[in-house]
C-alpha cells in the first residue's frame, strides 16, 4: 500500500467540495441542499486533516472537530427551519420560496 500524497488528498477534497457546491446549486429540495452543504463542509474538513497530517500537527484535526460542530449546529438550525417551512408552504422546493422580489 503506497502512501497517500498530500496533493491527492487535497484533490479529493477539492473534488468533494465541487460536488457539494454543484449539489447546492442544482438541487431544489431544501434537505438535499442542506446535505450538499454538509458535503462541502466535510470536504473542507478533509482538506484540514490532509494538511494537518502533512505538517504533523494536531491543528488540522482540531479544525475538523470544529467544523463538525459547526455543521451539526448548522444542520440543527437548518432542519428546524425546514420543518417550519414545510408546515407553512407544504413543499420543500427551494424555487417555491420566492415571496420576495425586487
Amino acid at each position: 500500500m503506497s502512501e497517500i500524497s498530500i496533493e491527492q488528498g487535497l484533490l479529493l477534497s477539492a473534488a468533494l467540495f465541487v460536488l457539494g457546491l454543484i449539489g447546492v446549486l442544482a438541487r431544489r429540495n431544501l434537505i438535499m441542499i442542506l446535505m450538499a452543504m454538509e458535503v462541502m463542509f466535510n470536504a473542507a474538513g478533509l482538506a484540514f486533516i490532509v494538511a494537518g497530517s502533512r505538517w504533523g500537527q494536531a491543528d488540522g484535526q482540531i479544525m475538523f472537530l470544529l467544523i463538525l460542530t459547526l455543521a451539526a449546529a448548522e444542520v440543527g438550525v437548518g432542519l428546524g427551519l425546514v420543518l417550519q417551512i414545510f408546515r407553512r408552504f407544504h413543499t420543500l422546493d427551494a424555487d417555491s420560496l420566492n415571496g420576495m422580489r425586487g
Partner: peptide, 22 residues
Amino acid sequence: IKYLILSGVSSAFLLMGIALIY
C-alpha cells in the same frame, strides 16, 4: 433559510480557503 444556505456555502468557501492556506 436563504441566509442559512448562502451563509453555509460561504462558510464552506472560507474553510476550504483556510485549509488550502494551512
